[in-house]
């Protein structure tokens, strides 16, 4: 594996910003609205500097009123505008559930195809740093089951830019599940994530305004022969960390970055499992009725004859997120748990 790569100087948050800036320069119908996105320069500095470039007409501070501004965005989208609605955290989107899962994804269908909803909802997803149970939601399992929306969980700055650009351009409601823990990923000196990645897969291409990652395509982020680990978002890095540890034990792991749960590219996953004959799914949701359970189920349907053992799932522990740091780390689908699952499933435990 490549340990260092100069191209990783772009951070995840910068990649998100570039995606929005490039699309906004091309299309006046796009505006950004959310809490503290304008004058504060973004609660997490994702929209830093955008007010200066685009002005208050297009970079719009909203009050703490998720139902209101999410719904406002949907109404605007029905007229053909392309709002980007930022949730400071996806945990806060729950108060706007009626708007984002009842109105946005169903508008086209309910209106018999008359009114679409080309809107983007984006924000931080998953456990942050000791934020406790109300602020640590992973919403992919809840929302991926809703027809009418598309949902991405970008794992790298490259994903962050390419998927968000694709989502902005897409005419359907697009949910971009970012991660507070990854926003600074790619910063110089960042030890958490970058060292497991091949350079070319890390950063988006420079000076390429047309770069997008099509929705519905998994990425084989690390090739291997002995077991497939399927994951998305931050847990992809846990999987890569596990793969590094297992390499020392002589196990060559293939890691798949799902990128979008809806649409789900089950073909790429199935192809990998048919090759390795073993599968572990790592998912930052709770286990019951989760995206991990769905992927496992589809792997069984597609690869029943190729599997040499049952599919093993690694999830958040089935408890509310704790505040205590050690407990929080233990709750996550971390590298230790993934490595143990791979050992078990490949009869190396």
């Amino acid at each position: 594996m490549v340990a260092q790569d100069d191209s990783r100087k772009i951070q995840y948050r910068e990649a998100l910003r570039q995606a929005m800036e490039e699309e906004m320069r091309k299309d006046d119908d796009i505006f950004l609205m959310g809490e503290e996105v304008a004058e504060y320069n973004g609660a997490y500095k994702v929209s830093e500097g955008m007010l200066d470039e685009f002005g208050p007409r297009r970079i719009v501070d909203s009050p703490i009123s998720e139902t209101g501004f999410a719904g406002l965005g949907i109404g605007a989208a029905m007229t053909g505008l392309k709002p980007i609605i930022e949730f400071m955290s996806w945990s806060f989107c729950l108060v706007s559930a009626d708007q984002i899962i009842n109105n946005a994804p169903k508008m086209l269908y309910m209106s018999g195809g008359q009114f679409g909803c080309p809107i983007v909802f984006r924000g931080n997803n998953g456990a942050g740093g000791q934020l406790g149970s109300t602020h640590s939601w992973s919403v992919e399992s809840m929302f991926s089951s809703v027809p009418g929306l598309k949902l991405a969980v970008p794992a790298t700055p490259r994903d962050a830019k390419g998927l968000l650009k694709a989502g902005i351009q897409d005419p359907d409601p697009f949910f971009n599940l970012e991660s507070e823990r990854m926003l600074g990923m790619g910063a110089r000196g960042d030890k958490d994530f970058s060292r497991y990645l091949h350079g070319g897969l890390w950063a988006p291409p420079e000076n390429d305004d047309d770069f997008v990652i099509p929705l519905g395509q998994c990425e084989v982020i690390k090739e291997g022969t002995d077991c497939t680990v399927v994951s998305a978002g931050r847990p992809v890095h846990f999987a890569l960390e596990a793969a590094e540890a297992l390499e020392k034990e002589g196990l060559d792991i293939e890691v798949i970055n799902v990128r979008t749960y809806r649409p789900l590219d089950i073909e790429t996953i199935a192809r990998s499992v048919s090759k390795t004959n073993y599968c572990v799914v790592a998912d930052q949701s709770w286990p019951f009725a989760s995206v991990g359970a769905e992927v496992a189920s589809q792997v069984y349907e597609r690869c029943f004859d190729d599997l040499d053992n049952s599919v093993k799932r690694v999830h958040n522990d089935d408890v509310p997120a704790p505040y205590n740091r050690e407990m929080e780390q233990e709750m996550l689908p971390n590298a230790r748990k993934i490595a143990e699952a791979v050992r078990q499933v490949t009869y190396n435990a």
Binding site: G68, F69, I74, G75, A76, M78, T79
Partner: peptide, 11 residues
């Protein structure tokens, strides 16, 4: 009602 705001916003 929030949708109505969006329609007005768009105008």
């Amino acid at each position: 009602n929030p949708l109505g705001c969006g329609l007005a916003w768009a105008a």
